[in-house]
């Protein structure tokens, strides 16, 4: 994850309390989604950014996961994301996200 984005996540989690934060990802595929999710839960796996060794354990989902999608307005979702969702391998994304959440999410 971009270093500036890691810094913002860290600051916002400290400011608002990690239990109050939800991170929503738009990654293009499963592995990238998994790495981003790992970064905001277990720490930056690439050891480059401010979240290296920081285990925030944030709640994190990909926007195409049912838990998020089901709460959104279907018309707006269809307009903004619908067609891209057809292009993405959503099953792969869901599997990666679920695995990371089960392992590292605290909230």
């Amino acid at each position: 994850m971009d270093l500036e984005n890691q810094k913002r996540v860290k600051e916002l989690a400290e400011l608002h309390g990690p239990e109050n934060i939800l991170v929503i990802l738009g990654a293009a595929e499963g592995e990238a989604a998994g790495i981003a999710a790992e970064t905001v839960t277990a720490g930056d796996p690439t050891y480059a950014g401010p979240l290296t060794g920081v285990q925030l354990g944030l709640s994190v989902y990909h926007v195409c996961e049912d838990a998020i999608k089901s709460e959104l307005d279907p018309t707006v979702y269809d307009e903004q994301i619908g067609m891209m969702e057809m292009v993405l391998d959503v099953d792969d994304i869901v599997n990666e996200m679920t695995a990371i959440r089960e392992q590292y999410s605290k909230y």
């Binding site: 996540v9 934060i21 990802l25 738009g26 838990a67 959104l72």
Partner: peptide
Amino acid sequence: MSLLKDKKIIVIGDRDGIPGPAIDECLKSI
């Protein structure tokens, strides 16, 4: 329980997946 309404949200979009502003539009509408 609502996942989205009870939390403060950070969006990390992807240029080649779903860009941030597209996710924002969905979130703002609710």
